[in-house]
Structure formats: C-alpha cells, structure tokens
C-alpha cells in the first residue's frame, strides 16, 4: 500500500472568529443531553455498583477456583506448573501423598496471595489438568485485612454439591492433615467458601 497523507483541516472560518456561535452550538448539544437524561430515555453508562453489577464476559479473569473431579476431590495433582509460571510468584503449593495409590499426589496446601496476583491467567494456561480456573466472575475483592487475601485451598475449592457428584470417594476428612491447624484452615475473617 502506498503512503497516503492527509493534511488535517484547521478550521479558520468566519464562524470560528466569534465566541457566540460555538457557544450556542455547544449549548444546543449539552441541552439535548440534559433533557434526554432528565425526561427521555436515560442514556447513562454509570452503574450503581453494589446494587447492580456489570455483566462480565465469559472470559473474565476473576478470582481463582480449584475444580473437582466427579468424586468431589480436587483435580489438582500438585505438579507445580502454575507456581512455576506465575510471574507474580503468588501461588504456594505443598504436595502430599494421597491414600489412593492410583492418585499420585494432591495439594496439602494450595495458597494464592490474591494481593500479589496480577490476574494474568498464565496459571490457567499452564495447568495440565484444568484444575485451576479463573472463571468465578468475581470482579472485586475488598476485605479489610491483608491476611484475608491469602486464599487457602479450602477457600479456593469449588462449592461441593453432593447432588452433582454422586459417589464421593474421599472427603477432606479422610485425608492426611497438614501439620498445623492454622495453615490449612480457611481464613478466620469470615469469607464464605463459595
């Protein structure tokens, strides 16, 4: 394609030499908007946020979640892919042995520091098991304490619905526990697990 150049037009007419015509032209426009929003159909893009929520797209990268298998147990095999690829180094995993020998490993700890997270989505791409997703649609996380943003495994886990998963083989209670209670428990700040 050849180079096409367009000289921008500087408006220097008679109308532009006076203040009044443009002031009236502008007033006509703003008055139109004023009365349209006062009486007619409101063309307002503002959202009254906490009451109405903006529909986020299907691809919106929100808070992480850990998906489950059909038996209700986490899909994650603690392979450390996401921890390695994370540019913000916000994922911390500790692997543990699963009682079922056919399942090699599972995460004893899976913590994400959501304050460090940059929501790039590289962990989702790197996961070979589709165990971590960012499709929760959670747009804003606002808590009053810094500690609250340390999301542990149990908080990140999907809501477990027994009707959907018919024969749970292993619940969390069957599994070996991490050494200290605090390290595995959901944060005490009262975040719902969902």
């Amino acid at each position: 394609m050849e180079l096409k150049v367009k000289q921008v037009k500087r408006v220097d007419g008679v109308k532009e030499a006076f203040y009044i015509p443009a002031a009236f032209g502008g007033l006509r426009l703003t008055v139109k908007h004023f009365f349209r929003n006062l009486f007619g159909s409101r063309d307002v893009v503002t959202i009254n946020y906490p009451e109405e929520k903006r529909p986020v797209s299907m691809r919106w990268r929100g808070r992480h979640r850990l998906t489950r298998k059909d038996d209700g147990f986490l899909k994650c095999v603690a392979c450390y892919m996401c921890e390695t690829v994370c540019p913000a180094k916000c994922i911390h995993i500790e692997a543990g042995e699963h009682p079922d020998l056919s399942i090699e490993k599972y995460p004893v700890r899976f913590d994400i520091d959501e304050l460090r997270c940059v929501f790039c989505g590289l962990c989702v791409e790197a996961c070979p098991k589709e165990a971590i997703r960012m499709d929760t649609g959670v747009v804003a996380m606002a808590y009053s304490s810094r500690k609250t943003f340390d999301f542990t495994r149990d908080l990140l886990r999907d809501n477990y619905d027994p009707n959907q998963h018919e024969s749970p083989k292993y619940g969390d209670e069957d599994l070996p526990r991490p050494e200290s209670q605090e390290s595995a428990l959901p944060n005490s700040q009262g975040i719902p697990a969902s």
């Binding site: 394609m1 180079l3 096409k4 150049v5 367009k6 000289q7 921008v8 500087r10």
Partner: peptide, 18 residues
C-alpha cells in the same frame, strides 16, 4: 498493515491544536 488502506494525518505547525 501493508494490506490495509489508511491515511496518515499530518498537521502543519506542530502546535497543540494540530
């Protein structure tokens, strides 16, 4: 971009209006 047709706008004096 070499398959797409567009014009390069240029100004004349290089002031803020341009």
């Amino acid at each position: 971009y070499d398959e797409i047709d567009f014009e390069i706008p240029i100004g004349s004096t290089g002031d803020c209006f341009d």
